[in-house]
């Protein structure tokens, strides 16, 4: 046990001394999350009024000015056309009753909807009926489905797997044919299983602490609460960290590629998985969901990010147990496979 503890302390010490590990585990996630929150913080505000021009003499001109959703610009003729083509306004309500727009987006649809509604309203009054604008007909329930929540949960899913780098490092400390340090260690009476297990435990602890730190950072600094269900979230983070390290162990042990190849490979692979999960905006995630649904079902970043979102934003435990079990079992399988690759063997030369 003492040997195990000393190996754990050694692993933790080496991780803290390795500037590269510290950067990828702590500084990079904070930098990226901060950038994301700052970049998308504008998305979280209310839907902005839609800029529109109304030609003089339009029958609904005065009504348009009273609608909060519209930002009516008092321009006409060529000036209005210029604004439309420069994308400073989304449409022009022409005096002939036609709405002129640039394309078929949501803003243009809302403009048409407002124009159509006013046309309908005048028909209703012309038919001798009246509309009750004081009465509320629907209750609006909000769903925090904004881009910020999707991208942040996908990023958290990615960072939760950054234990990968610890996993790769453990192997590079143990496999004699991978690094000079490992070659020296292989000549010492060090217990391989104790060293790997200690590395695994310290790696899981550090990776979990890093993810929890990020969750607190988002909650306290940016007021994005992904800790509404702390215990289940903690369990998920532990399972994710274990799985991340297991992938690192497996990729580290299964081939002879140098560290300089395995680190960028991990970074790129995780970027790809997190992009599929929505880190680079919802369109790509939707494309994957529609065309390759199986990919995102078993995409570990997506499994983690969705579960974090479900637990803390929707308050749902759907797929929680299933995802934890999948991550844990897959992690165990990868660890066993890695140990097989790392079993004692003799090298002709090093």
């Amino acid at each position: 046990m003492r040997r195990f503890c000393s190996h754990m302390a050694l692993n933790a010490k080496m991780s803290f001394k390795d500037k590269s590990s510290l950067f990828w585990s702590f500084i990079y996630p904070i930098l990226l999350l901060t950038l994301m929150v700052i970049a998308f913080s504008g998305v979280q505000t209310e839907q902005k009024p839609i800029a529109v021009a109304v030609e003089p003499g339009h029958p609904f001109a005065d009504v348009f000015r009273q609608i909060k959703m519209l930002d009516v610009k008092d321009v006409n003729g060529d000036e209005a056309f210029t604004l439309l083509r420069d994308k400073d306004i989304d449409g022009i309500y022409r005096v002939d009753g036609v709405l002129l727009v640039r394309g078929s987006g949501v803003n243009e649809t809302i403009l048409r909807e407002i124009g159509s509604e006013l046309t309908k309203v005048s028909s209703v009054y012309a038919a001798g009926r009246s509309l009750d604008f004081t009465k509320r007909y629907v209750e609006r329930g909000d769903q925090k489905e904004g881009m910020l929540y999707v991208t942040l949960s996908a990023s958290l899913g990615m960072f939760a797997l950054y234990g990968y780098f610890s996993g790769v490092l453990i192997v590079h400390h143990m496999q004699a044919n991978l690094s000079p340090l490992a070659a020296r260690l292989s000549t010492t009476p060090i217990s391989r299983i104790s060293y790997v297990t200690a590395g695994l435990v310290s790696g899981v602890a550090m990776s979990s602490l890093q993810t929890i730190g990020l969750l607190f950072y988002l909650k306290w600094v940016w007021k994005v609460d992904y800790l509404a269900d702390p215990w289940r979230t903690l369990l998920l983070v532990l399972a994710a960290s274990f799985f991340g390290i297991a992938i690192g162990l497996f990729i580290g042990a299964s081939n002879k590629w140098p560290l300089k190849a395995k680190v960028p490979l991990g970074v790129a692979l995780m970027l790809l998985l997190s992009a599929a999960s929505g880190m680079m905006g919802p369109p790509m995630r939707l494309f994957i969901e529609n065309k390759l649904p199986w990919l995102n079902r078993y995409n570990p970043v997506n499994m983690i990010s969705r579960t974090i979102y479900r637990l803390n934003v929707i308050g749902s435990t759907t797929e929680f147990t299933e995802n934890i079990l999948i991550l844990f079992i897959a992690g165990v399988v990868l660890c066993v496979a890695s140990l097989l690759f790392m079993r004692k063997r003799q090298f002709k030369s090093l």
Binding site: E46, V106, E113, D132, Q143, G146
Partner: peptide
């Protein structure tokens, strides 16, 4: 009242709510 569940900060959320509001108001008028 019926509940319109959507991301109310998005254009789609506004549109979904506005559509329902319009329909029920006109239905009431008739």
């Amino acid at each position: 009242l019926p509940v319109v569940l959507a991301d109310q900060k998005s254009g789609a959320g506004y549109y979904a709510g506005a559509m329902a509001e319009t329909f029920f108001r006109f239905r009431d008028a008739y």
